[in-house]
Amino acid sequence: MRTSVSLTLLIGLCCPLHLCAAPPTSPARMATIPIQGRALQLIDQSLADLEAAFASDPQAPSVQRLRDETARNLGLLRQRVLAIPGLPAPALESFASGKPAAAPAPLPESVRAVGELNPVWELDRQTRGERWLFNLQLTPEDAKTVQAVLKIQAQVFGEITQPSARVFIQEKDAQIQRLAAQWKTFYESVTLQEYPWESTANGWLDVKRPITDIPTRQVKLFHPVSGVVAFQGRQSSSGSPITGAEVLGLQWYDPGAGYKPTWGLGVLVTLKAEGERSSGLGLIASYRDFKFGYRQSRRLDGQKVDQAIISINLARYFDFTPSRALKQAVDKLQASKGN
């Protein structure tokens, strides 16, 4: 009884040239498939059957191209199976003969095949009543060569190219699933948390970015900001509330942590506060949902005032003196947000 030799063969066995020409990836990441030792015998038998059918086919002239194309594809497939770099000779002999090797030879974990092959080895019905294979119409269907080709197609497709294709497509499918999951997270954690004008502006900036390259930074635009004054000049502030907008800023996100915001930096414009002559201008930085910034404005007497701004959630971590005023301001802002 013939023992089939199982070895792993790179999915490139039946891949078109442009894929095989791709730079090699690390072996651990390569798609590998098991292939039965019967493969070479099946190919050789198929070639012999094809020649026999064609030699005795009275309709030979009309199926010449079909025979040529099929033989070419089988030849390419055979070369690939034989041209497995790194495959130890005893294993190759055993593989080619179908007989078990004297001693089990170590097989490479993955191997790279060469050549090119028609990627879809199957019937192709592009219009009603017509069947095609290799870009050739299968007429007349009762020709011996056509029947031989159909049998070869079913066997080779079923035993060699189809399992290879399945492994390859499964890996591609897994990539698509990952990409979709990442976009879902990004869309829910970033896009839907932005104001529509921001997400649209960001989309506009990224209009030529490949869909596989999910952004990790976003532009902030007229993004409302509220906070309290933590320090004013050299003194702790009375905690007066500040409202304004981050007119232009950049926000980075961590793709490894569900696209949570990390660092951000932006230009801050705030409304005129009580006792001030002008609206304030400054910078605001953020880490996660904490914000801290610098703001400068003019008091009614014309004197410039430098202020340190912090967001409400950050203010809770500070113990200012006098802290009561700040606490009251924070409570007031939180109460108004709650309403």
Partner: peptide, 28 residues
């Protein structure tokens, strides 16, 4: 005009269609 919403739609539907293309390799 909304690049991100479009990317989300494309990837979600691609992820739904892709397994059906894998199923095609089960046989002619």
């Amino acid at each position: 005009f909304h690049t991100q919403a479009r990317a989300r739609v494309i990837t979600q539907l691609a992820a739904a269609l892709s397994p059906l293309l894998v199923d095609l390799t089960e046989g002619p």
